[in-house]
Design a protein around this nucleic acid. Structure first.
Lengths: 209, 209
DNA sequence: ATTATCTATAGATCTATAGATAATGC
DNA sequence: ATTATCTATAGATCTATAGATAATGC
């Protein structure tokens, strides 16, 4: 099988040899794409740049993916999926007050956005993402936003809001969370934990007024 | 002179004739670039696409600008300049309480970000903007952020904060304001005025806790 | 035999320049 | 004569495919 490298590999050796990363080729491509897409952008990154950074020649990439789009689609979904899983958990657990669950969702979301070396959240800022091609991502993101809406509505203060007011608050909170991507982009040093706590506090202050 | 069109124009006529826009050619180019950069992105927009949308052939663009970069640089600065002018005014006027000035800055900023048909704020999201080439933009943006910091510090609650706490709050408020770009991008219908007021309220709640 | 990679390349761009042309101005 | 535009194009990409090659596996 050769799942994770280890011994000798079948197939022609790579031209540019490097210390074995321990990753499978597809994962190497995803990692390379994450680095390049987040820093230079999607359109500005060529297939050659991705492949070469992953340690293979441009054409070899097509053995693993159909093109750049597939890489971006997969990276995007991997950004939201963990937040969404946690949000579903929180929605189901009504032993905990809604404010507390909302606070936890905000904090976790911010931590996930700031975690990892490549500011994956910044992928969401790419203009290409608005394309229909990434409908899958938009669907999961919409579901996440709806989880925010439900938690806000279940809050004492949120229960009193008219529908349009509730949606306004949801947009504000969701905007605050996603705004973190921008802060993190220009201030990458800020320690993630404290920032996440402060953002969650801020979200509750916005909601509870 | 022929400043704004009107009579006959000197020079070879354009190949594709259209109803006179009333704009000068350079302004036509900037408008076209704004439309395309905000929707498709910078790298994905060719000089041909910009020129053709402005009503001229690709090569003719070079009579007015040195290339795409110049267009983006000019558009970017035009995004922050009005906010910055207003922020300076507010900083100078100490007849008004700091909270009120902060509130006004937030509201105006959000309104400016949501005004206009092309979500010019979205330009700031483009990955290319991080480049040194746009240092001018970064300088004015930093000055705007510093105005926020000063106003927050002048607030009753802000006066009590340690330096690092003050900076955290500033980042949160600035992030909330810039997060508006993202909300506006996915929810362009939301009426700007009410949203701006609500965002300014939220900013004060974040600050005053 | 199977597989992962390679080299080579066709066809489609895209940018920036060179030089021609069709107006007005004098 | 001056000017704004045009057409044409060289040179530099970039994507995706075709076909060769160098490993292991049996």
């Amino acid at each position: 099988m050769g799942t994770t490298g280890g011994g000798r590999r079948v197939g022609r050796p790579r031209a540019a040899q490097r210390p074995d990363s321990g990753l499978e080729p597809r994962a190497e491509l995803l990692l390379a794409a994450a680095e390049l897409f987040t820093t230079r952008g999607y359109a500005a990154t060529s297939t050659r740049a991705v492949a070469e950074r992953a340690g293979m020649r441009q054409a070899s990439m097509y053995h693993y993916v159909s093109g750049k789009e597939e890489l971006l689609a997969e990276l995007l979904e991997s950004t939201v999926t963990p937040s969404l899983a946690y949000a579903r958990e929180l929605l189901a657990d009504d032993t905990v007050p809604a404010e507390v669950r909302l606070w936890r969702l905000c904090r976790t979301d911010v931590e996930l956005l700031c975690a990892g070396p490549h500011n994956l959240g910044a992928l969401y800022l790419l203009p290409e993402v608005r394309t229909e091609r990434f409908a899958g991502f938009h669907a999961v993101r919409a579901e996440l936003k709806d989880a925010y809406r439900q938690l806000i509505a279940a809050t004492p203060a949120g229960g009193l809001l008219a529908k349009s007011e509730l949606e306004l608050r949801t947009d504000l909170v969701f905007g605050l969370i996603e705004g973190v991507i921008l802060v993190h982009r220009s201030e990458p040093e800020r320690p993630a934990r404290a920032f996440a706590d402060a953002t969650a506090d801020a979200a509750l202050r916005i909601t509870g007024g």
